[in-house]
Amino acid sequence: MVTKALNPSPSKRVSTWTLMKRNKIYYSMIAPFMLIFITFTVIPVLMSFVLSFTSFDMLQPPKFIGLSNYINLFLNDDVFLIALKNTLILAIITGPISYLMAFVFAWLINELPPKIRWLLVLIFYAPSISGSAYLLWLLIFSSDMYGILNATLMNLSIINTPILWLESPKYALTILIIVQLWLSLGVSFLAFIAGLQTVDRTLFEAGAIDGIKNRWQELWYITLPQMKSQLMFGAVMQITNALGIGMVSISLLGFPSVEYSGHTIVTHLLDFGSTNSTRLEMGYASAIATILFVLMLGANLLVQKLIRRVGT
């Protein structure tokens, strides 16, 4: 009765319902995926939001404490501010650079003969596909004289004693940036290559006749506008990755890293929210997760707006 009162046009309701019944086979097809998607993505996001207003240690039921978690994060938690700063620095550097890299390399590779193109795509894409193989950077930045970087630098007489790459706070962010960039030619890179292949080449001839002088003009006026949708997809991938740096930091710099030099929002979240942690505070961790969520979604929506303007 209440629903009827709320809904002034019952006929439309009925028709939606019959439409749904008529299409029930489609619901049965999407059901398995949606069930898992809702359980492990939609509900967690909502739960995270709700729990962020509570104090919750998984043993006792959550207790509502209002905005305390957020206030504590920004006013009383110095480590969070370090994590936020590091995350933003890493994202602002690796995000745009990795995005440009993915595009520029895709664009350069696209002009090469197919065999060479195939090989270069493989080489560039290999790091991001190889799972936890980034651990091999541990060997490169290893702190003794057998570490590849130390050995090379010593051999060239640039340094005399091994540098403690992974243990010195001042190198932490640089190392993370290098490794992250090494890992960053992922799905978006492939999307760009594929997008470039579908660009209509006859337009280039037309462009040349119309007075396009060099490859840069060609890129801006012809190529980019044609692959706007891939550019947007790539941006989503790169932004999400750039703001989500965490596992690489834990694996290379330790957890927690020396003086929190490689601490990011993700590692801070794990500090409070992982069951291995001594300070299990799910409410607090949820507040961190919610901030990360807002940051990622906000950055993505903003950049989407910007990219829509490309070529105009």
Partner: peptide, 12 residues
């Protein structure tokens, strides 16, 4: 859902 990483939903 493509716009945020798994870390966001890790705890729940």
């Amino acid at each position: 859902s493509l716009m945020f990483s798994a870390a966001v939903t890790a705890i729940p």
